Computed example of a mutant assay.
Amino acid sequence: MTETPSGYYFPAGGLPSQTTLMTARAVFTPAYCFIPRGCFSDILTSNLPGWTKTRLWLIARPMSGFSETFSQYVMEVASGGGSDAPDPETGAEHWLFFTDGLATVTIDGTGYEMEAGSYAYIPPSTRWTLLAEGGTPARFHWLRKLYEPAPGHPAPAHFVINERDVPVRFMPDTENRWGTTRFVDPDDIAHDAHVNIVTFQPGGRIPFEETHVMEHGLYVLEGRAAYKLNQDWVEVEAGDFMWLRAFCPQACIAAGPGPFRYLLYKDVNRHANLRHLR
């Protein structure tokens, strides 16, 4: 499988043939990392303690010279699999975005049916479980971050929603070619990170070099584009993953013929951490 019935891309796994020509598209630099979808083979999957009938591609983790604030997993859970204790890190907050299959996510005793397009935010120190229940594996993205409290603001409450129920908010003066599906209010200071979906219609673009403080993780759900990462223009397509460190210049031109869409992580709404430099 490469594209789910919903249209969201998910890795096919497997292993390339011994006659396959290596495309040499994978890049790891001090400013950004680009992991093309051809790197998502079976020999690169991982397992997790406490999870059954599950495999995942771990595509971002905090480490020197790479991700500083988050980890990201591309999860595949076979029917009947899942976890009653998903994460021993009690201070972590979680974002789940489903691309295929069916599962029940139970948060603080309340069960939610998850399908393609379902999105869940789970705050730190929250009891949750996941059980895959469909005839095909449940496939989803799982992002994790250590929550940074803000003085005077309680941690956000959990919520579950589906992408189709959230309007795309288009950037001004873009003729509705560049927009974002925002799952939380950008002005809500309680949230220390956003996980949204960005959409470009064919020909839509970021027409300048964005250079700002947020760290980025971008997994391409649909379509193709030319994406500028630091000084390099890279052709990207559904299934590719990009990580950008803070202040890495970026720009984009959607190639068509359909929309170009990606799941976007970025850290927000907090002071710059000074102590780790001491």
Rank of each mutant, 00 (worst) to 15 (best):
G7F: 03
F10Y: 14
Q18A: 15
T20I: 09
A26H: 12
F28K: 14
A31Y: 15
I35D: 02
I35C: 06
F40W: 14
D42L: 05
L44M: 13
T52N: 07
L56F: 07
W57E: 02
M63H: 10
F70W: 00
S71C: 04
Y73K: 09
V74G: 05
V74S: 04
V77L: 06
A78R: 11
S83Y: 01
S83D: 00
W95K: 01
W95E: 00
L96F: 09
L102T: 07
T104W: 08
D108E: 13
D108M: 06
E115Q: 09
G117H: 02
S118L: 03
Y121S: 01
S125I: 03
S125V: 05
W128I: 00
R139Q: 12
F140H: 06
R144M: 02
P149H: 02
P151C: 01
G152T: 07
H158D: 06
E175T: 10
N176E: 14
R177N: 14
R177G: 10
W178A: 11
T180G: 10
R182G: 09
I189M: 08
H191N: 11
N196L: 08
Q201L: 12
P207A: 15
L218P: 00
A225C: 15
K228T: 12
L229C: 14
Q231A: 14
Q231Y: 14
D232P: 02
F241A: 13
F241G: 01
A251V: 10
C252E: 11
A255E: 13
P257T: 08
L264M: 14
H271I: 06
L274F: 15
L274I: 15
L274N: 12
R278I: 11
R278T: 08
